[in-house]
Design a protein around this nucleic acid. Structure first.
Lengths: 203, 203
DNA sequence: AAATTTTTTAAACAGTGTTTATTATTGAAG
DNA sequence: CTTCAATAATAAACACTGTTTAAAAAATTT
């Protein structure tokens, strides 16, 4: 079965080859700015070849989204070391913003871009994202249990916190902070985050 | 000068004709889903004609963005009747969310979509958006002056509030609330908003 | 070495934004 | 009223897009 194994390996290599080229192009030109022919040129194959490894452009996108979700999850891994739930929650927010501001293109891919999302492939991505989301919800729940919040509505609290950090990142990523000078934008976001953490102490 | 006036009027009519067709198509198919040929078909002219009234597709987009900004501003007009700054601020948030959840396509156009934004045309839109933004900042400033907040950093407060409501709307508009059942999403957003207003009382 | 299966691609199809040269239509002048 | 210039509209083309298909090339099995 060695030859079949090798073929399988080569198939996987080709998929990774396509994906890494696609991700590179995507990060510099945006989803709509990248064509199948661009990707084909980058990997020095014909455009038709790509369709032997991915059903369509959306499936490539879905795979990239999955990759991005993995990078983001890894970004949260250090949180497992933090035992105090409140500290972990605050650091969760900090790391969320860090990721969004630093890897804007990946964040965009995961949380902003309009895209298939109905793809079979994306169910893996969805599952990956859900584990992160559940880890977050669980952290909030622990805080609720430990009476860090006045309210006991874990769902509403978690959603409120998420909405805020997403808002901060989304405004930044999609360039809606033009009324603030470029060099002050990130600073403002971080100052706001500090303010927000103070403010949820009494939630 | 009557004939030149009529020509000018007709030119303006044609622009409006194109824009209203474009807006209709845009609202049902999204920006990328609408082609110049689609618009041309809708108004029963040739595609090339459109280029006599708009430089390119981005300029049409910019004009639509300006329209949307106008609709949004109108949505905030009743706020002028509210004298108490705190009440006005809370209603500002409520109306912001209302607009975003109700006219998702317009909100998307203004605050999410990647688009020219460097266009000459858009400077008008920008100016329009800025008046709304300044009205908001001013309301926050009045609240700060009246000691409704502990902090006196008006800029940071305003940004924090904006980020939150944008986050709520953006997650909804771009369909990132799939972990919540469809019929509960808006309810959760509103419950969160109530929670948020309670929480900023001590900001 | 021949036959079969797998992998790759050239070419085509219908669509896109945009430009250009040509045709209609309109307004003014003789 | 007819001619002439200016304006408005368009057909056709260009280079691009995602995707499919049939033919060619390469690798594997017989």
């Amino acid at each position: 079965m060695s030859i079949a194994d090798r073929k399988e390996r080569e198939k996987e290599e080709m998929r990774r080859n396509i994906l890494s080229a696609a991700l590179g192009l995507f990060r510099e030109k945006g989803y709509d700015g990248v064509s199948i022919r661009n990707i084909a040129d980058a990997i020095e194959y014909s455009p038709a070849t790509i369709y032997l490894y991915f059903r369509d452009k959306n499936e490539i996108f879905a795979a990239l989204q999955y990759e991005a979700a993995g990078v983001m999850r890894d970004h949260f891994l250090p949180l497992l070391q933090i035992e105090n739930p409140w500290e972990r929650l605050i650091d969760f927010g900090r790391r969320y913003m860090d990721f969004g501001l630093k890897y804007s293109d990946l964040y965009d891919l995961i949380f902003i871009i309009r895209a298939p999302m109905e793809h079979v492939e994306n169910q893996e991505c969805w599952a990956l994202g859900m584990t992160t989301h559940q880890f977050f919800t669980q952290t909030v729940q622990t805080c609720v249990d430990a009476r860090y919040f006045k309210s006991t509505d874990t769902e509403a609290i978690a959603y409120t916190l998420w909405a805020y950090v997403h808002g901060v990142v989304a405004l930044f990523v999609r360039d809606r902070m033009r009324m603030y000078p470029p060099e002050k934008r990130e600073e403002l976001a971080r100052k706001s985050f500090a303010m927000f953490t103070k403010m949820i102490e009494v939630l």
